[in-house]
């Protein structure tokens, strides 16, 4: 679920932090910059693990801050493909089931990755697995807030950096109500025995 990522960055330490220990100042700056942010093709950054190497600090004319090239390792949330994870159902819609892990919400289970046969109940606005038993079909609903076990099947990174004015004006013509893109989306599947709501497999 979590991995270590090796990164290199130039850290700018403001003059008013010179009274602090250099290492502490660098740790704080790095945590402030990366924690709880998604880095493209890396994952959701959590916290600094360690600093591996500091290069010499340098000063620029006209800037009171010092700049240091830092090699460091960061804890990153990046589940690997086929990993089994646990989460809670956040919402159900026709597009699928949205799952949250508390700190990460962009997990979606598309309709084609659910137990077969599963249907969307319009009345309840929930997905239900039509489990066949001897005495007929039973609807196993995927209620909101239930714990769910799923397998990671795919991941997608979207570049959400702001676009230039040309592109932006084109986009706004398409309509302001465009859905907010999430930078990192995990696609999951619950189509195997053992996957799905924990209560389905307890007995």
């Amino acid at each position: 679920m979590f991995v270590l990522t090796e990164m290199k960055d130039t850290v700018r330490i403001q003059p008013w932090l010179f009274k602090d220990d250099v290492n502490d100042a660098i740790v704080n700056v790095l945590n402030k910059k990366f924690a709880n942010k998604v880095v493209h093709n890396v994952g959701l950054c959590i916290a600094l693990w360690d600093i591996q190497q500091l290069e010499d600090s340098f000063l620029f004319p006209g800037d009171g801050a010092h700049h240091t090239v830092v090699y460091f390792r960061f804890v990153v949330f990046r589940p690997f493909i086929d990993e089994i994870l646990l989460g809670k159902i956040k919402s159900c819609s026709k597009d699928g089931v949205h799952v949250s892990m508390g700190f990460f919400d962009d997990i979606i289970i598309p309709p084609n990755a659910m137990q077969d046969p599963t249907r969307f109940d319009e009345q309840e606005q929930l997905w239900a697995w039509e489990y066949a038993m001897e005495d007929g079909k039973h609807d196993l609903f995927m209620d909101i807030g239930e714990e769910i076990r799923f397998r990671v099947s795919d991941e997608a990174f979207t570049d959400t950096t702001p676009v230039g004015p040309d592109q932006a004006s084109q986009d706004s013509e398409k309509g302001e109500a465009e859905v907010k893109k999430s930078p990192y989306t995990v696609t999951a599947s619950v189509s195997e025995p053992g996957l799905g709501l924990l209560s389905w497999w307890n007995s």
Partner: peptide, 16 residues
């Protein structure tokens, strides 16, 4: 910022 190695090691939940 430069990424040197995306997945240099896996961490267990306990370590995190």
């Amino acid at each position: 910022m430069e990424v040197k190695k995306e997945k240099s090691a896996m961490l267990s939940n306990y370590e995190v």
